[in-house]
Nucleic acid binder design. Structure first.
Length: 505
RNA sequence: GGCCCGUUCGUCUAGGGGUCAGGACGCAAGGUUUUCAUCCUUGAAACAGGGGUUCGAUUCCCCUACGGGCUACCA
């Protein structure tokens, strides 16, 4: 059986956006599922849109997401090079071959002439299309005598090769997610395949030639490519090449459903559209999922479920589970509006399952920035107590500051709610009891305080909330006894004393 | 405008001729907890409309509406 090979083929025109990540993910899952190859090809045939740093960004982003490619830009492989600008020498012969075989032709129209034809078309109320209806009135090797064609080719440098779309034939393809798609060729236009002025192909030619040369078996890409699918089929046929299988993925839409998510959305929408922070050449900075505190596993899990589902009620998938269960047949046809709340929920789920030590390592820099340098083991214990209350590591400080410093102020509402004339006496008693305990463990302290509360016939809630207020400064956090054990006896007594002074003044 | 693709709770989706139309996020209400969060329970919430076909359509077909994509010597 033929080896499955897929590619992710972005253009280095800026940061890779989140929809691109999803496309890469589906390619990756499909490749792994079928024990095939996943290739990264850089489609940089438009030098005017080239953006410095974009390729490296794409590679870094895929790496962060855990989408390891087997061949491609940066790592090479048997079909090197994987950057189309470095493959420019191979495309012209294919374009010329198409001309020789009658499937394409030379066109000499200047951009002004094309512009004029379009405006003239607009004036008449119809859109200009370069195809069988107009090509004879344009300047090309179909309309011009041979000697003029030669002359143009020799004397000008801005001619192109256009594909000659046949008239009134139906092209139909079986798309792996959409089923049969068919189009009548009369509505297609004679797309430019190759440009003399920069000796480079356009997307359509480069894409097909490279997919053929790189032995790609499945083309999995965004739905925005569906309209050019008939053209691509026609090109494959013209070359007499076996076409790969196609799968067009539904688009990721903006949350309001008005249009697809695009790079230009930056973070105007209130959430990142890029996996990693991106600094554009003009200095504009866009935030990234990584910098916002998302775990790559959470992002991947979230993205995988946008346009695909396992058909079960499972929501949480590791990469291995995704690989095992992925199936193009279960890809949804309709576009998915982006909902960041769900992404947050996934992050929370993954955060909860992280090891305390791992979280501590992530939290440590935050603490150090505040001038704190607690022992890692202590931080790990704190993380263990607060992690299920957080969505991001960046939530940690607000949830755990009191493990690292004596509260500087006390929550007004909590003070009003829990403080009264008996508070001083209660806290003094607690202080006395605790100071008498030498083994300051959660068990021992809890036992001592609870039996005292019981003895006094008081309400546990009232006492504990007051105690919490004194130690934490607010009505938040894990078990009081876990807290005081961690901060220690001395600090606990100090905080009680401090709070006592506060309520007495 | 033309062509293509799509349309199940607010969102992501399951389902598919006869279902109480299921799950998840979010939201609301209870419960657990010394607080917050977690967790548990419950609730509100959907088949775009109209025609067919059929004993029966949310499911199949057609039309309309709406949404999206494409319509470059961009990808």
């Amino acid at each position: 059986m033929e080896r499955i090979r897929v590619r992710f083929a972005p253009s280095p025109t800026g940061a890779l956006h989140i929809g691109g990540v999803r496309t890469a993910l589906f390619n990756y899952l499909f490749a792994r599922k079928n024990a095939g190859d996943f290739i990264l090809r850089i489609e940089d045939t438009d030098s005017s849109r080239y953006v410095e740093g974009a390729e490296q960004y794409i590679i870094n982003a895929l790496k962060w997401c855990g989408l390891k490619f087997d061949e491609g830009a940066g790592i090479g492989g048997p079909h090197s090079p994987y950057r189309q600008s470095e493959r420019k020498h191979i495309y012209q012969q294919y374009a010329e071959q198409l001309v020789d075989d009658g499937f394409a032709y030379y066109a000499f129209d200047t951009s002004e002439e094309l512009e004029n034809a379009r405006t003239a078309g607009d004036a008449n109320g119809n859109t200009f299309v370069y195809n069988y209806t107009t090509r004879n009135s344009m300047k090309n090797s179909l309309s011009l005598p041979a000697h003029e064609v030669q002359q143009y080719k020799l004397q000008t440098n801005n001619w192109v090769i256009r594909f000659r779309i046949p008239v009134d034939t139906t092209v139909s393809v079986d798309d792996l997610v959409r089923g049969n798609v068919s189009v009548n060729t009369s509505v297609l236009d004679d797309k430019v395949l190759w440009k003399k002025n920069d000796e480079l192909p356009t997307y359509h030619l480069a894409n097909i030639v490279d997919d053929k040369l790189m032995e790609i078996t499945h083309v999995i890409r965004g739905e925005e490519w569906l309209p050019s699918l008939p053209l691509h089929i026609l090109i494959y046929n013209a070359f007499k090449w076996k076409q790969p299988q196609f799968a067009h993925l539904p688009l990721l839409l903006k949350p309001d459903g008005k249009g697809k998510l695009s790079k230009r959305d930056g973070d105007k929408l209130g959430f990142p559209v890029f996996p990693l922070k991106w600094t554009a050449p003009d200095g504009e900075i866009s935030r990234g999922y990584r910098e916002d505190g998302y775990f790559p596993e959470a992002l991947i899990n979230f993205l995988a479920l946008l346009g695909w589902n396992a058909g079960t009620e499972q929501e949480l998938f590791s990469m291995d589970e995704l690989i095992r269960q992925f199936d193009l047949e279960r890809v949804v046809k309709s576009g998915a509006k982006f909902n960041i709340d769900k992404a947050k929920w996934f992050n929370q789920q993954y955060l909860k399952t992280k090891k305390n030590e791992e979280l501590a390592a992530l939290y440590m820099p935050v603490l150090q920035e505040k001038g704190l340098n607690p022992p890692p083991r202590y931080v790990a214990k704190v993380c263990g107590l607060i992690k299920e209350r957080a969505v991001f590591v960046s939530d940690f400080w607000d949830l755990s500051y009191y493990f690292f410093m004596t509260p500087e102020n006390y929550d007004d509402k909590a003070v009003k709610k829990y403080c009264n004339d008996t508070s001083s006496d209660i806290l003094t008693s607690i202080s006395d009891i605790l100071s008498g305990i030498s083994d300051f463990s959660a068990e021992k302290t809890e036992q001592a305080i609870h039996s005292w509360i019981e003895l006094q016939g008081m309400k546990t809630g009232a006492v504990m909330n007051l105690f919490r207020l004194a130690i934490v400064g607010a009505s938040i956090g894990p078990s009081m006894f876990d807290i005081i054990t961690l901060i220690g006896k001395k600090e606990t007594l100090f905080r009680l004393e401090t709070f006592l002074w506060f309520i007495q003044h």
